[in-house]
Design a protein around this nucleic acid. Structure first.
Length: 690
DNA sequence: GCGCAAAGTATTTTT
DNA sequence: TACTTTGCGC
């Protein structure tokens, strides 16, 4: 196998592209061109090695990344339309696809609902009979971690260490039962259920293995146990060699809190002994100074793999750190600095990014940018599909698809108000519980007449008849065999529920207007996809199927942001992106590193700091040319100003060491950097780990 | 059953 | 500070 550079790639990159003899792990440092490797590899497989694009799956971490990757492959291909045949999606979307086709094997109907985290939150709230927010979240978290770790409720209960855990485990059991009575799944199930299916049913597993013969997994360091299990089940068996490429970077693992385990990287070598390991260490993104700082910070973490990033770009401009009196000043100063720099260097606004740890930090910054009349776009904030008005509409669609979906029923039947209130629903709920049926079914079940007055039952039955009627039309194939009736069904729905009227009735004009616009955008978005035109995988989808996809989306693709605007983003949402000029704000103890749960066990404390450090590393390595950091001496929390200290990570960047004497010609070799890093590892810091 | 007003409370990251 | 929950009156 030759690993001579090809496609304008460097040695290791083209090696990663060309290698198709077995499983491969590409350790790709920040900015080392991993997306290029993946897209080139797919292109190479199709055009030079005769792979059918239908048998290649690329799994990404977000829908946005999936979309981008597909577009990039389309650009590389001689026949761009082939890109549509690929499976490029998140693990979760792939899970939906599998579940939809194999639902019957799991005792699930193919029109199952997908519950979002809010639905699950309310469910836990009901089951735990509490309003304690912290407690509910803790239980929700426990359940999610168990599911991700493939732990059953029985096992969870048996292994419970204390009463708290036992309580969570008991709720976990009824949580699972309730979801199944709703014919619903949660996010974690989208991966857990396919795993169980593939484990128990070899025929189905073979079928999918034949269908998807080669897997590429991006951001592998952020996969959890369950996802790894799915990967293994999809690539092993059939007496063939496991074929996949995983791409990841242990230094950028920032989702441990969601059950991701970096150990999956190490496990890969154990589970696949002939794993080909390829390291991408040349950075094409940042200046040497930026990389130096990033390397210095991450050197404080224990290492899984030895890796040394280097760059051929020059030393670059010094990294600046600004101390600010308070968070409002911070926001204003950053806005002013960007504005000045923008006019001075004649840069585009979109060359600048402001990164922060938590979404709430965006508020002040937004205000400051507005004051300075600087255009901005926010990514990673509240998702479009989480807006109340969108969830209202989705509730109707969910109910249309699946009448066992009680939460959707409750939401739809009460929004807009139609004379059905809490007490009616309570009676209905008790009745349905007694007869083990859904709320919807209970409305028509014999005996309900005795429990409810005509005044209560009337609107309920009207509502259910309306849903039934609409459902029968939604399920009929449209004219010309397309999903064309989707548009008609949606229009009828919107017309019948008087949603616009409801908004203007309950809200102020401005708010109602903006919400109604969102609804219109959403409906249009659905219509576009219903016609089978715009959807990426080119498959026909009716409204009901679209509803399932919508549950996983967080952004309205296509509804494009201002192309020339400053990017604002959380550090998490910035992963995989790059910007010429980066401002990292709020670099304070308590924010970055974030102070977590004060009564969390001590042994996790070190690990938590390590994850925060990786987050810092991700932030630093987003910058191509300049990087500026700010921190505040005081910050408004709640109503009061609170004192803040500068983050330890600033010192760890070793700015004074690297920058003090202006040795402009200093160029550090990879070897030298490695030595430096080892030195750092050997000195103080490490003792907290050992 | 519903809407309004006051008080209380929470602040990490996301498929 | 902003948002949510609770309570009360119609």
């Amino acid at each position: 196998m030759s690993n001579a550079p090809q496609f304008g790639l460097n040695g290791p990159q083209s090696e990663a592209v060309l290698y198709l003899d077995g499983p491969a792990l590409v350790l790709a440092g920040a900015g080392s061109g991993k997306t290029r490797v993946i897209t080139q590899k797919i292109t190479y497989m199709i055009e030079d090695r005769g792979y059918d694009p239908r048998t290649i799956a690329a799994l990404t971490f977000t829908n946005k990344a999936a979309l981008e990757m597909q577009e990039r492959v389309a650009k590389l291909l001689k026949q761009p339309r082939q890109a549509k045949l690929l499976t490029v999606s998140t693990f979760h979307s792939l899970g939906v696809k599998i579940l939809r086709q194999e639902a019957n094997h799991l005792g699930l109907k193919d029109r199952f609902s997908i519950m979002d985290s809010d639905d699950c939150y309310s469910l836990v709230q009901d089951l735990a009979i509490t309003t304690d927010k912290q407690l509910i979240r803790r239980i929700q978290n426990d359940i999610s971690l168990w599911k991700n770790g493939l732990v059953t409720p029985e096992l969870a209960l048996r292994n419970a260490k204390d009463e708290d855990e036992a309580q969570s485990a008991r709720i976990y059991a009824s949580y699972v039962a309730t979801l199944s009575s709703y014919q619903a799944v949660d996010f974690d199930d989208l991966i857990r259920l396919p795993v169980e299916l593939f484990r128990d049913n070899e025929t189905v597993r073979d079928k999918w293995q034949r269908r998807l013969r080669y897997l590429l997994v991006d951001e592998y360091q952020d996969t959890n146990t369950c996802q790894y299990e799915l990967l293994k089940l999809m690539v092993t068996g059939l007496g063939k060699k496991p074929m996949f490429t995983a791409v990841g970077d242990d230094d950028q693992a920032i989702y441990a809190w969601r059950g991701a385990s970096v150990e999956n990287l190490a496990n890969l070598q154990v589970d696949f002994p002939d794993l080909k390991l390829i390291k991408l260490e040349q950075n094409y993104r940042s200046t040497t100074r930026i990389l130096q700082a990033a390397n210095a910070v991450i050197a404080n973490n224990p290492k899984l793999f030895e890796k040394a990033l280097w760059s051929e770009h020059g030393l670059g401009e010094p990294i600046k750190v600004h101390a600010m009196p308070n968070d409002e000043q911070e926001a204003e100063q950053v806005a002013i600095m960007i504005s000045a720099d923008h006019f001075e260097r004649k840069n585009k606004w979109s060359d600048y990014a402001i990164l922060y740890r938590g979404n709430h930090q965006a508020r002040v910054i937004e205000q400051a940018l507005r004051n300075q009349r600087i255009p901005y776009t926010i990514s990673g904030g509240q998702s479009f599909f989480d807006k109340a008005e969108i969830k209202d509409i989705i509730a109707y669609l969910r109910l249309l698809a699946n009448q066992d979906d009680d939460p959707a029923f409750i939401r739809a039947v009460t929004t807009p108000r139609r004379g059905i209130g809490q007490s009616t629903l309570e009676v209905l709920g008790a009745f349905s519980g007694q007869w083990q049926c859904s709320l919807f079914e209970a409305v028509f079940k014999g005996g309900i007449e005795a429990k409810l007055t005509d005044r209560q039952l009337g609107p309920l039955r009207d509502f259910c008849n309306f849903i039934n009627d609409l459902e029968s039309r939604a399920s009929r194939p449209g004219p010309a065999g397309s999903g064309d009736n989707a548009a008609q069904v949606l229009d009828d729905l919107m017309e019948a529920i008087h949603y616009e009227h409801y908004l203007y009735d309950t809200l102020e004009e401005r708010a109602a207007q903006s919400r109604w616009q969102n609804v219109l955008d959403f409906v249009q978005w659905l219509k576009d996809r219903g016609r089978g035109g715009k959807d990426r995988d080119g498959e026909e989808k009716n409204v009901l199927e679209l509803t399932q996809m919508v549950a996983l989306m967080s952004m309205l693709e296509g509804k494009d942001e201002d192309p020339d605007a400053i990017r604002m983003s959380t550090l998490h949402a910035s992963k995989g992106l790059e910007y010429p000029h980066v401002f990292l704000v709020g670099v304070e103890e308590g924010i970055l590193p974030h102070k977590g749960d004060p009564d969390a066990p001590v042994e996790t404390l070190a690990q938590r700091i390590e994850e925060e450090r990786r987050l810092m590393y991700v932030g630093i390595t987003r910058a191509k040319r300049t990087l500026q950091l700010t921190w505040c001496k005081k910050r408004k929390r709640g109503g009061e100003h609170v004192h803040c200290d500068v983050s330890r990570f600033i010192a760890e960047m070793q700015l004074d060491v690297g920058d003090a004497p202006p040795k402009e010609t200093e160029v550090i070799s990879p070897r030298e950097r490695l030595a430096r890093m080892k030195e750092l590892l050997a000195t103080p810091k490490t003792k907290e780990i050992t």
